[in-house]
Write a protein that binds this DNA or RNA. Structure first.
Lengths: 320, 320
DNA sequence: CTGTTAGCGCATTCAC
DNA sequence: GTGAATGCGCTAACAG
């Protein structure tokens, strides 16, 4: 492997001069620099990352922690992150699995963006206390070295139940996500509050954000044999599961029952009838997160931020 | 930041003894080891990755290069890779963008798995010649340090056109992907060969694997006003685009026209009528790729491999 | 069993 | 403008 010392030797300069030349320091005569660069190019010299990191104590790498790559909207989210950070000379790597958590204290990355409910808040706080900087997308967490960029769950839930309430005098079902996730709880809480204030009957069905739990919820509702009710699925995935069950039944979505989801993931574009859902820009979310992390890494003060969401109508709530 | 020398000092041992203790060498008395480990834990010691990498010349990291994270089936593919490599003490990071290519010669990762047609074969070969090991999923490439794990495109294309040919005496359209991609060419070639041998009329429509090009192809076909023809979309994405156009027309998919896709991505499960497509296990693909890379990194000989594919029927080809 | 020591590849401070 | 020397944090060969 050809290292910097080899370059220096061939160019008849010292190692430091070679290094200066590579890094574009003005301390080297243009003539000398060009000669060195030419030799480096010729020998296909590529600096070793570990060496540089060790010296500079900076990797220019940001880690994005996601639970499962299959996740419905990670693509756009990551694009947003990527685009911003690239512009600011950072590279982005996607990490998943608990073992990758250690990249943070190991100083393999300069900062992290986390959307992974299996990443314990305890660990995150511990890392923050060690001085590592993170942006969390899936929880509220106010502390030094941590910044939170969340969806406006409250607004979304409110729009959803308001719409369902307008359409149905009957009961409204709320299909929740895992009880330990922030997003589920925030949406559920806002929905319940609204329904309570309006004396609207509702029932909570425990789900876990998976299609399977959506199917289970649908079967539960069917068994009640009470048509003309509304369902707020706290994410689209569950709504999709619901569809598959209702479509095998005699109930018609958008007529006998109204459904609203959350996330506006791509798959739901292809459902018939079109699923009404709470939409937001995944790209913006990623970009904002990246911005915040960048600011933190530059020692600038940051504040938490909410991403706007809005109801995207669809035939699944009929014509109300 | 607390380093190994700090631990050593507090434990009244030398740096090397501390290091041995951490790495579980049998050269250290259990008693001493425990004392050292206790102190390390107390000080929240976490070894610095750059230091270790620099010394060991090994990162235990594998990079997976993907074009766009939104890609329809990356989730399962990556799970397959992850699962295998994790078991063998490697961590996996997902990379994208040209700038990340340099991780390979920089020795930031011990090996790479590539499914990214924007990653030039030239560069890959150059890296291989430098001694870096890679598994490519989207091209044929036989050379030292490179192993290829591809889909059995030929078999898939053959099954698709055979099925279409059975159903239609009329023309068969082949909607291609970008002309520079291996998968598109392989599928196209196999399909053409079969059709030529059987004297079946066909026409190629140039696409680029995007929904948009699928829509364009559909409009082109509609304009011909010749029903009862078959379409082999070289991927599902384009088939989905086609659906949206035909469904706004008077033509009925599966009746006036037959469509077969390739990939069996999740979205196509929700199309009505169900899209017939060429299916394969994405997880198996990832796992095989990981296996091959692991073998290479251990200096074992490897051979290229093909992943089995098979036709998954659907209503989009009617009842033939 | 434990300590001393020499790098891994690079960037940078300080002399010249 | 250039070179020699130092250290980043860690491992492992070698000596004790």
């Amino acid at each position: 492997m050809v290292g910097i010392r080899e370059i220096a030797k061939r160019a008849n300069v010292s190692i430091s001069t070679a290094s200066y030349a590579m890094n574009g320091s003005s301390k080297v005569k243009p003539e000398t620099r060009n000669r060195i660069l030419a030799i480096a190019a010729e020998l296909n010299y590529i600096p070793n990352m570990a060496g540089r990191i060790l010296k500079k104590q900076k990797t220019n790498l940001v880690g994005v922690y996601l639970t499962n790559y299959g996740g419905a909207f990670y693509g756009e989210l990551v694009s947003g992150i990527h685009e911003f950070l690239h512009q600011h000379h950072y590279d982005v790597i996607i990490c998943s699995g608990e073992r990758a958590h250690v990249f943070i204290p190991e100083k393999m990355i300069d900062g992290a963006i986390i959307l992974d409910s299996t990443f314990s808040t305890e660990t995150i706080v511990e890392y923050a206390n060690r001085g590592h900087q993170m942006v969390v997308l899936d929880r509220e967490l106010t502390q030094k070295n941590i910044c939170s960029v969340r969806l406006n769950n409250q607004q979304g839930a409110l729009e959803a139940v308001t719409q369902l309430n307008k359409a149905h005098s009957h009961k409204i079902y709320l299909v929740s996500g895992p009880s330990e996730t922030y997003d589920s709880n925030a949406r559920l809480h806002a929905a319940i509050r609204y329904l309570t204030e309006n004396n609207s009957p509702y029932e909570i069905i425990a789900g876990d954000f998976s299609k399977k739990s959506g199917r289970a919820a649908a079967r539960y509702i069917l068994a009640k044999q009470e048509k003309m009710c509304g369902v707020f699925c706290l994410n689209d995935e569950m709504a999709i599961g619901m569809y598959s069950v209702f479509q095998k039944s005699t109930w018609q979505i958008g007529k006998d029952i109204s459904i609203i989801g959350f996330d506006n993931i791509e798959v739901s574009h292809y459902l018939k009838p079109r699923l009404a859902t709470i939409d937001y820009s995944k790209t913006e979310w990623g970009e904002k997160a990246a911005q915040k992390l960048f600011s933190m890494m530059n020692g600038e003060p940051t504040t938490d931020e909410l991403i706007d969401v809005h109801l995207k109508g669809g035939e699944s709530i009929g014509d109300f």
